[in-house]
Simulated scan of single mutants.
Amino acid sequence: MSTAVSSTASAIAWDKVIDFSDYGELLALVHNSLWAGALLGLVGGLIGMFIVARDLPFAVHGIAELSFAGGAAALLLGVNVVAGSLVGSVLAAVLFGVLGARAREHNSAIGVLMPFGLGLGVLFLALYQGRAANKFGLLTGQIVAVDNPQLFSLAVIAAVVVVALALLWRPLLFASLDPDVAAARGVPVRALSPVFMLVLGLSVAMSVQIVGALLVLALLVTPAAAAMRVSASPFVVPVLSTVFALVAMVGGLLLAVGSSIPISPYVTTVSFVIYLVCRLVARLRRPADRPETPRPVVAEIV
């Protein structure tokens, strides 16, 4: 009897993980989400290299917490959630820039503000009396909640981020890889840092809407970290990072369509598998006397 119950429970659990019985009908419901995922993959892949090079994964998580608080506040007040997340992200970027002007102060400033943002977000969600799915989605992502106005907002944010990165790409990359040499060459390293934090805040605000506040690192950090395992070129890395982010985001969405659980486990799993494969490839290709972690060559961008 217990064996039969266990088998039934296992079957029910796997049905929740993936079920392609009505896949065609469900796929039509996530048209906007697929476009939003592609935009997020593009932005995450491009900015991820700078996040890893500047050692800012912790900052991404900190900004995500305040973006979550902004989105939760907007949900409570009945206003646009994207706008709320955007305000929270930009505020976090400004605060991190002000409180952590020196590199060694960044982590402590982020560590102070991150639990505060998470606490505010939890408070706002506790006061919210609407659908539970809206609460859960801010933390773990939503798959069918991207409507046309939200998609338009995400597209505008993505365009701003891509244009900003295109304009700042060369000096920002130089300043990220070797700030001392960049400053000596006349690159405005100090001015670039707060500008980049603002661009990062916009990217995080996008990510929170799709994959949730808890797992933004899977798109803004993991693809770039994987790309840097298999290439040391500052030109190849962003291309690979973008491809990996797109595969993780769109592939995760397509897998999540046939399930009743949030999108984030699928996106994070695909992203992590890509990272593991890249680590394996790097290990197989690396001679015994070669450093394990390749870094882009500064001379190629000077």
Results as ranks from 00 to 15, higher is better:
Ser2Lys: 14
Thr3Ile: 08
Val5Ile: 13
Ser6Cys: 06
Ser7Gln: 11
Thr8Asn: 05
Thr8Val: 07
Trp14Met: 15
Lys16Gln: 08
Ser21Trp: 11
Asp22Pro: 14
Asp22Gly: 14
Gly24Gln: 12
Glu25Tyr: 09
Glu25Ala: 10
Leu26His: 14
Leu27Thr: 15
His31Trp: 04
Asn32His: 08
Trp35Gly: 07
Gly37His: 08
Leu39Phe: 14
Leu40Phe: 04
Gly41Thr: 06
Phe50Lys: 05
Leu56Pro: 00
Pro57Val: 11
Phe58Cys: 07
Phe58Ile: 07
Ala59Ser: 13
Ala59Lys: 01
Ile63Ala: 02
Ala64Tyr: 05
Glu65Thr: 00
Glu65Asp: 10
Ser67Glu: 13
Phe68Tyr: 07
Gly70Tyr: 01
Ala72Pro: 02
Ala73Ser: 05
Ala73Phe: 09
Leu75His: 06
Leu75Thr: 08
Leu75Glu: 02
Leu76Met: 10
Leu77Thr: 14
Leu77Glu: 13
Leu77Lys: 11
Val82Lys: 00
Ala83Met: 13
Gly84His: 04
Ser85Met: 11
Val90Glu: 07
Ala93Pro: 09
Gly100Ile: 04
Ala101Asn: 12
His106Thr: 07
Asn107Gly: 11
Ser108Tyr: 04
Ser108His: 04
Phe116His: 03
Leu118Arg: 01
Phe124His: 09
Phe124Val: 05
Leu125Asn: 06
Ala126His: 12
Tyr128Trp: 13
Tyr128Gly: 07
Gln129Lys: 09
Arg131Gly: 09
Ala132Tyr: 15
Phe136Asp: 14
Phe136Gly: 04
Gly137Ala: 15
Gly137Gln: 10
Thr140Ser: 09
Ile143Met: 10
Ile143Arg: 07
Asp147Ser: 10
Pro149Trp: 05
Phe152Tyr: 12
Ala158Gly: 02
Ala159Thr: 03
Val161Gly: 05
Val162Thr: 03
Val162Asn: 03
Ala166His: 04
Ala175Glu: 00
Ser176Met: 10
Leu177Trp: 01
Asp178Gln: 15
Asp178Ser: 15
Asp178Cys: 15
Ala183Asn: 05
Ala184Leu: 11
Val187Leu: 05
Pro188Asn: 13
Pro188Ile: 06
Arg190Thr: 06
Pro194Thr: 07
Phe196Glu: 03
Met197Gln: 07
Met197Pro: 00
Leu200Phe: 01
Leu202Ala: 05
Val204Thr: 06
Ala205Lys: 00
Val208Pro: 03
Val211Asn: 11
Gly212His: 02
Leu214His: 02
Leu217His: 03
Leu217Cys: 04
Leu219Ser: 11
Thr222Ser: 08
Arg229Gly: 06
Val230Trp: 11
Val230Gln: 11
Ser241Gly: 07
Thr242Phe: 01
Val243Ser: 10
Ala248Pro: 07
Leu253Ser: 03
Leu255Gly: 09
Leu255Tyr: 04
Ala256Ser: 12
Ser260Trp: 01
Pro262Gly: 08
Pro262Leu: 09
Pro265Cys: 12
Tyr266Phe: 14
Tyr266His: 06
Val267Ala: 06
Thr268Tyr: 04
Val270Gly: 12
Ser271Asp: 15
Phe272Val: 02
Val273Pro: 00
Val273Phe: 06
Ile274Ser: 08
Ile274Phe: 02
Ile274Gln: 07
Leu276Glu: 14
Leu280Glu: 12
Ala282Cys: 07
Arg283His: 15
Arg283Val: 13
Arg286Met: 15
Ala288Phe: 12
Asp289Asn: 08
Arg290Leu: 08
Thr293Ile: 03
Thr293Ser: 06
Glu300Tyr: 14
